[in-house]
Amino acid sequence: MPGIKLTVNGKTVEKTVEGRTLLVQLLREELGLTGTHVGCDTSQCGACLVHVNGESVKSCTMLAAAAEGAEITTIEGVSSRDGTLNVVQAAFQEHHGLQCGFCTPGMVMSITDLLRVNASPSETEVREWLEGNICRCTGYHNIVKAALSAAETLRGAQPVAAE
């Protein structure tokens, strides 16, 4: 069984895993980081989305062994230690970007990655980016609004008013 060493939310992790262990299984079952969800398990829904070396990846479709040496960030790693929400999380709260909350960790991680590669996305670009993140509650509208608001905040502009 492969031994792996990686960084998860800033902490070094050393584990021995089976070849078939998925990254999401390592995170949830071995490390107890259950904020990363398994929705479809077929890389469609994006509930399992985490950052691998800063880029979004569906952790249900990556082997844990392939994360050797990688820096992983999960939803547990994005807020401050005192629980203060980060900009994207706060925008979700402000704009009611969630209802049941199941897809939200993946949404937050995905939008964080979008704002890394595109600081000023248009509404169309946000919607296209979220192609791989499925939400069955909100109809996406408030998620998109939250993403645009977070982008403005990060650019230092006035956030758009909540409706």
Partner: peptide
Amino acid sequence: IGDPAVRNR
């Protein structure tokens, strides 16, 4: 192809 996360792998 696929979506952004798929394209990263």
